[in-house]
Design a protein around this nucleic acid. Structure first.
Length: 1156
RNA sequence: GCUGAAGUGGUGGAACUGGUAGACACGCAGGACUUAAAAUCCUGUUCCCGUUAAAGGAGUGCGGGUUCGAUUCCCGCCUUCAGUACCA
């Protein structure tokens, strides 16, 4: 029999399903390998030819790994919550659960009849029709099964099934019950936070939390009413409810996360998005910013993808700088208004008044602090190692500024200063200083204990014990915060990455939304500012983004003081400063920053040069390498020293500190939509409370319509009698699309588990995903959120790996390749169409280039009559190799029925009849997005029908490198089909009788085999599937030429090919006599290099780098012998033209090059 | 603007560490088989010049450089695609 792919593929798909061939269970005797595909959203349109690309690649790899002896987990499921099903539900009234189920399972019942209703999980009958075209839907599962993937279907998951989303809700509850402890650098249960609040001041808790947490003392906490406690804890929880600015999409009626908004429009649907303040659920992903960034270094992902995540996280290292304000309530206003630069340090400190309590401390500070910082003594280092990370039970800080004075170590909650005396404390003067300092600190409410260097180094243990005792003896509740720790309100705080340019600041700019705008605006400026704010509000987010060039702003009338130079600078507002980033305020350095420069020019503000112009001219990167001028303490320094010196100086006077900022915001988690996971929360007195774990899953209630209520509540507000304990309101928003996909790879490990999201032992075995294949459109969404949830689950001890996806490959996008016919219309003088033609592609190109003559001649008309030629999309499925199937085209639309075609050779369908000789209609083509309206969608089912799944699989791989985007083009699939038939023929005689010989293979046959073994193995390991398809073709061509039908060769070939073309391989494996079943778990052929050893090589001989001829020589010859051989060769001498070469280069087994 | 990827025949692409550029396939041209078509098989196919055959020359986006030798490494530029953007 000839290659009967239809029967073969049907049989083997049945066999795999019946035998559960690919079911993967925990098996400690084998190494595990987890191959994962990004699971699809099951849309009504079904699979197109781009979907399976990644699945085929991962399936090849999974099958390969099985042959290599791995226990392979290779599952598939559906990301089945989401917007399209809901939009469709709004239009048609069909329940999204129904359409989703149909899209997955198809619309046929067991008897092959079309289903019109089904029972939902609560036993309610839901009626529904078919898809929008009234076409019967195959269903994703059927479509996937036809492609012969080795999925373990027993582990299928659907994010919208209650058994699944029960655990999504459960993870939400864990997040709600957790906070992020920066000291341990991980998430912890909220109870450890409560324990801290009970014992230490809230200001001493190092947590990632909202900015408006209260500075509670344990005494405050203990007396707090329970509800207030809950409200306060919400500010720490990893999922929290908070009034925040969100992306509101009115058309979709919901908020969106940042990654769901592209250029001011919603990613799904392309609707406009505006900023709006709303009470919203958020996920505190920012707590993990640093770990998400660092984790990228440990995973094997494509560099561009990592880079996108890095940009998204947007870490910038810089500093916070405080500019105090004038005029303001400060009593030291007078000092500020004269220029402080003219005063000496002591005077300046005194005039400031706002930081340093007395000038004596200021002097001390100037005297010693810098040495302290830069030259840490050994004793301090030894002690710090014992004191850090709360080893003594309390948080100890090192080199901390207290009242303008730097203490070696301090425990703030206990108000205890620990000092280690360095060498210069031994003179009488310094002892006197120390004494005064102690008195000074005591006055400020601090106790001081001192140790000598020797004590700290030689009897460290004893010193630590003393400190511990001291700490315990001080009762925390006695101490009150010192006045200077309460942040002064009379300052603007800015974030900058270029603190070295501080001396170049000539004004400050704050965002129009900044909270200080009102209080800063002077009466004279009020009109200006109000007008500007109004104008800003009118501008949409889009205008604001596109209109980057225009400079605009307004002066508040107020001034601030540069903390180092003492210069008085005006405060402006402008919309180029974003309220949402940093502090919403910037220090403007016109000489260093382009925007600041334009702003300064526009409003005639001063520009202070702070870099030596001569150096600037010379150095490539002047700002970083240049030498500073006009810059006080950093004059003459380079960038690095300047930065650290300025930060040190700012810290000394408490006006700034080094700070790391992240661009990434917390992720908005609520959606005002129906088709998503309900949030397992109810409200009591306006505060959210979790359901009990036993009450999960909280099922999605039925609603009459999938639209918001009249009062603007989300669709869940329509649910009748939907109350917690018949009393309390449930949360009405649902979870976003990414919730269910942020942990699904764990569910695959144990998909049916009802008592845990996955069994602990199974997680311990499968651990993480070894290979993840999917598109890079998920770079800043799914792939970031999944890493976040994974790290969280690890912190809580539920999973074992820090990163979920060890290796990731992005398959390229498959674009559409549209075909066009060109319709030429000729109008009569009344403007009506007189006649119309379809002209072939090359004629259209002439028309495009302005040459009408030939066309006019062909249609026997004047060229002036040609009104226009319109390209019209034609269904790519009736075009073969760009040749139009004219009969099919005529039947495509009634108006084409009598169309006249001008063929490529100029003949036409009227005068010469159709299809004769060279008369072909060639279509034009263009690469576009694959879409129905462009008639360029290629359905894999059609190709499977015509060529079989094995051919489709191989062809998709043959198309090009997996990671590269490319247009789909069915031209060429024949070549792969021919290859499989040729492969089949190797096993059969001319009358298709199965004939293999048991003779020993020849050397040439073994060489062909081992060449391909080596090649395929190397190619699969580096995911170069396209090249191994070529190699298969070469091998089969060679074996065909050798007329090889030796079992010893062919059996190995079958195994080699099986990951790519599993059906034909299984069938041939069976025909070869392996009756017991599948070849999926046999051994991958072993490569033996002995078969590839050559004793001769045809050396290319080149003269001056140009190849002239080949010379076959023994590989045993050493370069010197080769050279001798070459120089005596007659043919070579001909090319030398009588000259003797200057140089002869011989690379053994590679090349000979003669230089003359 | 910034970041990243990529530019090779008519087309998809190959060339792994600097060593015969264009493997493999499509398409095209010619031929065999056939009453004919399909299928199959054979031959040719980077371009230019030339042609019975040969023999030349150019050539991997452009311009330089390193090297005996560069698609591959370095410098400068151009183009395309993707992501991102008053991020201080």
């Amino acid at each position: 029999m000839d290659y009967q792919f239809k029967q073969i593929e049907k049989d083997w798909q049945k066999f795999w399903a019946a035998n559960e061939t690919f079911k993967a269970e925990v098996d400690e005797s084998k190494p595990k390998y987890y191959v994962l595909d990004m699971f699809p959203y099951p849309s009504g349109a079904g699979l197109h030819v781009g979907h399976p690309l990644g699945y085929i690649a991962s399936d090849i790899f999974a099958r390969y790994k099985r042959l290599k002896g791995f226990n392979v987990l290779h599952p598939m499921g559906y990301d089945s919550f989401g917007l399209p099903a809901e939009q469709y539900a709004i239009q048609t009234g069909q329940h999204p659960a129904f359409t989703t189920k149909i899209n997955i399972d198809g619309c046929f019942d067991d008897n092959g009849n079309i289903k019109t209703e089904y029972l939902d999980e609560k036993g309610v009958i839901i009626k529904g029709a078919l898809n929008s075209e009234k076409q019967p839907i195959q269903g994703y599962t059927q479509q996937l099964k036809k492609l012969g993937f080795s999925f373990d279907w027993s582990k299928e998951v659907r994010t919208s099934s209650p058994e699944y989303y029960k655990w999504t809700q459960w993870i939400f509850m864990q997040l709600f019950n957790s906070w992020y402890n920066k000291e341990t650098d991980k998430a912890e249960h909220i109870s450890t936070l409560i324990a801290k609040l009970e014992t230490i001041p809230a200001t001493e808790i190092n947590a990632v939390c909202d900015e408006d947490v209260l500075p509670l003392l344990p005494s405050d906490w203990s007396t707090m009413p329970a509800e207030e406690k809950q409200a306060e804890l919400l500010k720490y929880r990893l999922t929290y409810l908070k009034e925040s600015t969100v992306n509101w999409c009115a058309a979709l009626g919901t908020v969106l996360a940042n990654d769901e908004v592209k250029d001011g429009f919603s990613e799904r649907g392309g609707h406009p998005v505006e900023q709006k303040k709303m009470m919203q659920w958020s996920m505190r992903i920012t707590a993990y910013a640093e770990r998400l960034l660092q984790g990228l270094n440990d995973i094997d992902w494509p560099e561009p993808l990592k880079e996108m995540q890095r940009n998204w996280i947007g870490k910038s290292v810089g500093a916070m700088v405080k500019f105090s304000l004038i005029p303001g309530p400060s009593p030291k206003e007078k000092g500020a208004q004269e220029n402080l630069e003219d005063l000496n340090d002591g005077e300046r400190a005194e005039r400031r008044g706002y930081e340093t309590a007395n000038s004596f401390a200021w002097d001390l500070l100037k005297g010693h602090s810098k040495e302290n910082r830069q030259n840490q003594t050994d004793a301090e280092i030894v002690l710090w190692n014992e004191l850090r990370d709360s080893q003594v039970g309390f948080k100890i800080r090192r080199q901390h500024v207290i009242e303008g004075y730097i203490a070696d170590f301090v425990c703030l909650p206990k108000r205890l200063v620990i000092e280690v005396d360095g060498g210069y404390h031994n003179t009488p003067e310094t002892i006197e200083y120390d004494k005064q300092r102690t008195e000074f600190l005591n006055k400020a409410g601090f106790e001081v204990i001192r140790f000598t260097n020797e004590e700290a180094i030689n009897s460290t243990k004893q010193v630590i014990t003393t400190i511990k005792q001291k700490l315990q003896s001080i009762s925390t509740t006695q101490v009150a915060p010192s006045p200077s720790e309460k942040a002064g309100d009379e300052a603007i705080e800015v974030f900058t990455t270029r603190v070295d340019t501080l001396y170049g600041v000539s004004f400050l700019v704050i965002a129009p939304e900044h909270e200080l705008v009102a209080s800063l605006t002077t009466p004279e400026q009020k009109a200006d500012i109000d007008a500007y704010i109004l104008a800003t509000k009118k501008k949409s987010e889009l205008d604001r983004m596109s209109d980057v060039k225009t400079v605009s702003g307004a002066f508040t009338g107020s001034y601030a003081i540069n903390p180092l130079s003492g210069k008085k600078v005006p405060v402006w507002i402008a919309d180029y400063v974003l309220a949402g980033y940093g502090t919403g305020a910037v220090m403007a350095v016109p000489s260093g920053d382009q925007r600041d420069y334009l702003f300064a020019q526009h409003f005639n503000l001063p520009i202070i040069q702070i870099l030596d112009a001569q150096v600037c001219d010379k150095e490539a990167d002047a700002t970083k390498e240049g030498r500073y001028i006009n810059s006080g303490i950093i004059n003459g320094l380079g960038y690095k020293e300047a930065t650290s010196k300025i930060i040190a100086a700012l810290e000394d006077i408490g006006m700034g500190y080094a700070k790391i900022n992240y661009r990434m915001r917390d992720a908005i988690f609520g959606r005002q939509r129906y088709w998503g996971e309900p949030v397992p929360v109810y409200f009591k007195n306006g505060l959210p409370y979790l359901l009990q774990e036993e009450e999960l899953p909280l099922l999605l209630p039925e609603v009459d319509k999938y639209l918001p209520t009249e009062s603007g509540e989300p669709p869940l507000g329509r649910a009748k009698d939907w109350k917690y304990q018949d009393e309390y309101e449930y949360e009405l928003s649902t979870m976003p699309g990414w919730a269910g996909s942020s942990w699904y790879w764990y569910r695959y490990m144990d998909a049916q588990n009802d008592s845990a999201f996955a069994d602990k032992d199974k997680i311990a075995y499968w651990k993480d995903v070894d290979l993840y294949i999917g598109g890079n459109e998920h770079a800043t969404g799914h792939l970031l959120y999944s890493r976040f949830w994974n790290k969280f689950l690890k912190d809580l001890g539920y999973v074992v790996e820090e990163e979920p996806f060890k290796k990731l490959i992005n398959q390229g996008m498959i674009q559409g390749r549209s075909n066009f016919v060109y319709r030429l219309t000729i109008n009569d003088r009344f403007g009506n169409i007189r006649s119309s033609y379809f002209i072939s592609h090359s004629l259209y190109r002439q028309y495009e280039s302005g040459d009408y003559d030939l066309i006019a001649w062909m249609i026997k008309s004047e060229k002036d009559d040609i009104v226009k030629i319109t390209p019209i999309h034609v269904d790519v499925n009736i075009v073969n190799n760009d040749i139009l199937d004219i009969e099919a085209f005529r039947n495509f639309r009634p108006e084409y029925k009598d169309a006249v075609f001008i063929y490529e050779n100029g003949t036409n369908s009227l005068s010469f009849g159709e299809g004769r000789g060279e008369a072909k209609y060639i279509c034009g083509h263009e690469v576009e997005k694959m879409s129905k309206s462009k008639f360029n969608v290629v359905n894999p089912d059609d190709l499977v029908e015509r060529y079989g799944a094995d051919t489709l699989r191989m062809y998709e791989m043959f198309l090009g490198p997996l990671e590269q985007s490319k247009p789909w083009n069915t031209n060429g699939i024949e070549g792969v089909f021919k290859f499989l038939r040729k492969f089949w023929k190797l096993f059969h005689d001319d009358s298709f009788n199965f004939v293999v010989s048991d003779e020993a293979p020849t050397k040439a046959e073994l060489k062909a085999l081992h060449k391909i073994i080596k090649k395929v193995e190397e190619d699969i390991e580096r995911f170069s599937f396209n090249t191994s398809v070529s190699s298969f073709m070469i091998a089969v061509n060679e074996l065909t030429d050798l007329k090889c039908n030796k079992r010893a060769i062919l059996q190995e070939m079958v195994i080699l090919l099986s990951p790519y073309a599993p059906h034909i391989s299984e069938e041939l494996w069976k025909l070869l006599g392996n009756q017991e079943g599948t070849l999926s778990y046999t051994q991958f052929p072993a490569f033996n290099p002995a078969h590839l050893i050559e004793n001769e090589f045809a050396y290319p001989v080149s003269v001056n780098g140009k190849t002239k001829m080949n010379l076959t020589l023994s590989l045993a010859l050493e370069p010197a012998d080769v050279e001798k051989e070459v120089l005596t060769n007659e043919q070579v001498l001909k090319y030398l033209d009588g000259k003797s070469p200057k140089k002869v280069i011989v690379v053994k087994g590679r090349i000979i090059n003669l230089v003359i």
